[in-house]
Design a protein around this nucleic acid. Structure first.
Length: 497
RNA sequence: GGUCACGUGGCCGAGAGGUUAGGCAGAGGUCUGCAAAACCUUGUACAGCGGUUCGAAUCCGCUCGUGACCUCCA
């Protein structure tokens, strides 16, 4: 089996993954800002890194997965009239800031659960770590890389860049950044336009505010991740994940802050997922083209032709490599829905197949192919989490599984070991690693009994060649969302929508 | 304007110097009382123009197109 390789955004190449501490992985993912509802674009990183977490765990690593909740507004720096997203929205909705934060945190967690994302081990909030942030800012000041100006504190990027490779992660050159002519509020306080805020003085109307050595204010955007990741994962940890759009300035700033405060860059491997686009444009609030997660699940949005099950969305996302853009479309989602149904059905068929006891495969060639498809799954995941290829291989096996059931493929074609391998591959990759769940919930017993009775009556009619009755039963059930299928062996199965 | 990506068959999307991605849709067939499902067969694509090479969709250059970041952003 191959070794795990990950594309490291920092070095721009695939690298063999080797944790700092043997068998342990520290992983930090930038979490949501809970000033509003999450949209489809937000779903991607959390699903992507959920799979990363699942796969690392599958490989036997003890993973500590930290994902923050940004519940304090520090979007003040660019200084539009919105001083602080959280408090502004709070005034609008006449809610306490923390009430608002609670509301959207709950909604976020609701969505994550439906996507079948495993909860992080630690989910720290920015407001709960103001002290840590203040002390980290202080440390940076003590080191001489930050300065205070009118109650705000800024990081001295120019000075930093003289000694450290500022811009390496995001591929930026400091000289070009210094030349950027952007007229933004607060710029006059900074020594250079590239400097970023570590601490912002709170204007009088600002609701969220904390006391600090520099007066009342609130932390800058980038410092929370640095303070919280180092607190729970140490000064240097293994993996840092997030959306590509966070590379600059957020992650670049994190690196600078940590380098000064802790003497090293925070993470060894940086992973960035690409964006979800809609009509070719990035889905994002600035473009006003978002489809919220609640809308996606309910179908209540002008762009949506139907509601989409969370597992369909998850499957759709995993059918694309995480570093490629993924264009939203109804056709794509609908194709994924059908595809996932077929794959999951095959998995259920596989679980019910009688493995047999033959040591030797009746069809050596097919047996070899199946073995190869199974074994390749590990290689594909090891190659920078290529979930798309894993899914493709699982699909390769669907006709084999269905063929065995339908009689087109001999039951003896595969050896008993290969049956087991196939089943364990689906268990491991489809369920455990990709985190897929069935679309329908298990129906309860009473419905089972009622349907059994109807099926019995229908079968009776069919033996009498009373097709009017049998078709009536089937058609009425179809209308009610219950689909009957006459199987080859004479049995009748059904699925409930 | 600067930096960086990307451009694959009807659609979505992997991959990558010579050998089938996969899914959805379409066509034909098998099975079936009819359906549905399933199974089988079927598509030879890689923006354009040059170059490197025995050979390129895959490498290099140019052109065109699209997008991302440079500001909050997943």
């Amino acid at each position: 089996m191959s070794d795990l390789h990950i594309y490291n955004s920092y070095t721009r190449q695939k690298e063999k993954f080797e944790p700092i501490v043997k068998d342990h992985v520290g992983m930090y993912v930038c979490g949501p800002t809970v000033s509003g509802e999450s949209h489809m674009g937000h779903a991607r990183p959390y699903i992507t890194f959920d799979v990363v977490y699942r796969y690392l765990t599958h490989l036997g690593y003890k993973v500590r997965y930290v994902r923050n909740i940004t519940d304090a507004g520090h979007f003040e720096e660019e200084g539009r009239e919105a001083q602080d997203k959280v408090s502004e929205k709070a005034q609008l909705e006449r809610l306490e800031p923390m009430e608002l934060v609670q509301k959207y945190s709950n909604l976020f967690h609701w969505g994550m659960r439906l996507f079948n994302n495993i909860d992080p081990n630690i989910e720290p909030t920015a407001t709960g770590h103001v002290i840590e942030q203040i002390s980290m800012i202080q440390k940076i000041m003590d080191e001489g890389f930050a300065y205070e100006q009118n109650g705000s504190v800024y990081f001295d990027v120019k000075k930093y860049a003289e000694a450290y490779p500022y811009g390496k992660l995001s591929g930026r050159k400091i000289d070009e950044l210094l030349e950027t002519t952007r007229d933004l509020d607060g710029q006059d306080e900074k020594r250079n336009k590239v400097d970023f805020a570590l601490w912002k003085k709170a204007p009088p109307q600002h609701i969220m505010r904390w006391a600090s050595p520099w007066g009342e204010g609130f932390p800058g955007w980038h410092i929370e991740c640095s303070a919280m990741s180092s607190k729970y994962l140490g000064k240097e940890f293994d993996l840092h994940g997030g959306g590509m759009d966070l590379q600059f300035p957020h992650h670049e700033s994190e690196i600078a802050q940590s380098t000064i405060a802790h003497g090293c860059a925070p993470a060894r491997y940086w992973m960035h997922n690409n964006m979800i686009t809609i009509n070719g444009k990035k889905m994002g609030k600035s473009y006003n083209n978002v489809i919220k997660i609640t809308e996606l699940f309910s179908g209540d949005h002008p762009m949506l032709e139907q509601a989409y099950h969370p597992m369909v969305v998850r499957f759709n996302i995993l059918q694309t490599h995480y570093r490629s853009t993924l264009d939203f479309s109804n056709e794509s989602l609908q194709a994924s829905e059908k595809a996932f149904r077929r794959l999951w059905d095959a998995y259920e068929v596989l679980q019910k197949l009688e493995p047999g006891t033959n040591d030797n495969a009746g069809d050596k060639e097919l047996n070899e192919k199946v073995t190869k498809w199974c074994n390749e799954c590990a290689d594909f995941m090891n190659d920078d989490m290529n979930t798309a290829k894993v899914i493709a291989n699982l699909f390769e096996m669907a006709p084999v599984i269905n063929g065995i059931k339908g009689g087109q493929v001999s039951k003896e074609a595969l050896s008993a070991d290969t049956y087991k391998l196939m089943l364990s591959t689906f268990d491991t990759y489809l369920v455990e690693v990709l985190g897929m769940k069935p679309l329908q919930v298990q129906q309860d017993n009473k419905i089972d009994q009622v349907l059994s009775l109807l099926i019995e009556i229908r079968n009776d009619a069919r033996t009498r060649k009373d097709y009017a009755t049998s078709d009536l039963i089937r058609n009425k059930l179809t209308e009610a969302g219950v689909m009957l299928k006459d199987e080859k062996d004479g049995s009748v199965s059904y699925t409930i929508e």
